[in-house]
Measured scan of single mutants.
Amino acid sequence: EIRVRVEKDPELGFSISGGVGGRGNPFRPDDDGIFVTRVQPEGPASKLLQPGDKIIQANGYSFINIEHGQAVSLLKTFQNTVELIIVREV
């Protein structure tokens, strides 16, 4: 597990896919977790996150067994800083 802090400027600078009942993700199709799919170059998350990172927690909210829409809404709700716990396959 890796813990990262992303400062919104003005957005977080990454996209996610997956989630329960979602269209899945390109990295682990059998896993309904939330995965980072795109990281904006030079964006707030560019040095912190990589495509394929699985987000398991954001600001204390579990991202395990969460629906895609709910994950997106939560990330939009947070002000300024988001603390993520991620799992990265090496």
Score class of each variant (00 low, 15 high):
S15D: 12
G60S: 10
E83L: 03
E83A: 04
K54Q: 07
T77K: 12
I56M: 07
S62W: 03
V87Y: 12
L75T: 01
G69W: 13
F35I: 08
E7H: 15
N25S: 08
E42L: 12
S15M: 10
D32G: 08
N80R: 14
A45C: 14
G33K: 03
Q50S: 10
G19Q: 04
L49I: 15
D32C: 08
R23G: 14
A71M: 02
S46G: 14
S46Y: 08
V39F: 00
A45Q: 05
E42N: 13
K76Q: 15
G13S: 05
K76S: 14
G24R: 11
N80F: 07
L49H: 03
Q70W: 07
E7L: 12
G69N: 15
I86E: 01
R23K: 11
I86V: 12
G21L: 08
N80K: 15
Q40V: 14
V36K: 01
I86G: 00
F27A: 08
P29C: 08
T81N: 09
D53V: 00
P29V: 10
K8Y: 05
Q57D: 13
L74H: 09
K76T: 12
Q57P: 01
F35P: 02
V72N: 12
A45V: 07
I66R: 05
V87F: 14
F14A: 00
K8H: 06
D31Q: 07
A71Q: 03
I85Y: 09
V90T: 08
V87K: 13
G69Q: 14
G18L: 02
G19L: 03
V6H: 01
F35C: 03
Q79P: 13
R28F: 13
R88Q: 00
R5W: 10
L74Y: 13
L84F: 13
V82W: 00
I34V: 07
G33S: 09
I56A: 06
G18R: 04
I55G: 00
L84H: 02
T37L: 12
T81C: 13
S17N: 06
Q79F: 06
D32L: 08
V90P: 11
I86H: 03
L12F: 14
R23F: 15
K8L: 13
G33Q: 03
P44N: 15
S73N: 14
E83P: 00
S73Y: 14
T37Q: 09
I86D: 03
F78L: 09
Q70K: 15
A45D: 05
S15Q: 14
D32W: 07
E1R: 07
D32S: 11
Q57W: 09
R5D: 05
V36G: 01
S15Y: 07
D53Y: 02
L84S: 00
Q70Y: 10
I55D: 01
I56F: 01
G43T: 09
G19A: 05
S73E: 15
T77V: 07
G22T: 11
P41H: 09
T81W: 09
K54V: 06
L48G: 14
D32E: 13
P41G: 07
E1N: 10
V90G: 14
P26L: 10
D32I: 06
D53P: 01
R3G: 04
A71V: 03
Q50T: 10
I16K: 03
F63C: 04
L12W: 08
E67C: 12
R28H: 13
V39R: 00
P10Y: 14
K76I: 05
D9A: 15
I56L: 10
V36S: 02
H68K: 08
R28T: 11
F63P: 02
A71S: 02
P51A: 11
L12H: 10
G13C: 01
A58K: 02
Q79M: 11
I64N: 10
S15A: 12
E83R: 06
F14D: 06
V36M: 00
R38T: 09
F27D: 14
G24D: 11
G22A: 10
G52T: 01
Q50F: 13
D53T: 01
I86S: 02
F78Q: 08
I2W: 03
K76F: 06
G33C: 06
G21A: 11
I66F: 05
Q57C: 13
I16A: 00
F14V: 04
V39Q: 04
L74T: 07
I85D: 14
G33V: 01
Q57E: 14
G52H: 04
S73D: 14
D9N: 11
V4Y: 01
V4A: 02
I55N: 01
N25A: 07
P41N: 09
V4N: 04
S46L: 06
G52P: 00
R3A: 08
G43E: 04
T37M: 08
V6C: 04
E42C: 14
G21V: 06
D31I: 05
A71I: 02
I56Q: 07
L75F: 10
Q40R: 12
I85V: 15
G21F: 07
S17W: 05
F63I: 01
T81H: 12
K47I: 07
E89P: 09
G33D: 03
G21P: 06
L74K: 09
V6P: 02
V72F: 09
V39Y: 01
Q40T: 13
T37K: 11
D32A: 14
V4G: 02
G60T: 06
D53Q: 03
S15K: 09
F27L: 10
I2P: 00
T37G: 08
Q70R: 15
Q57I: 05
I56E: 03
I16V: 09
I2Q: 07
L12V: 08
E83I: 04
G43A: 09
Q40Y: 09
G19W: 05
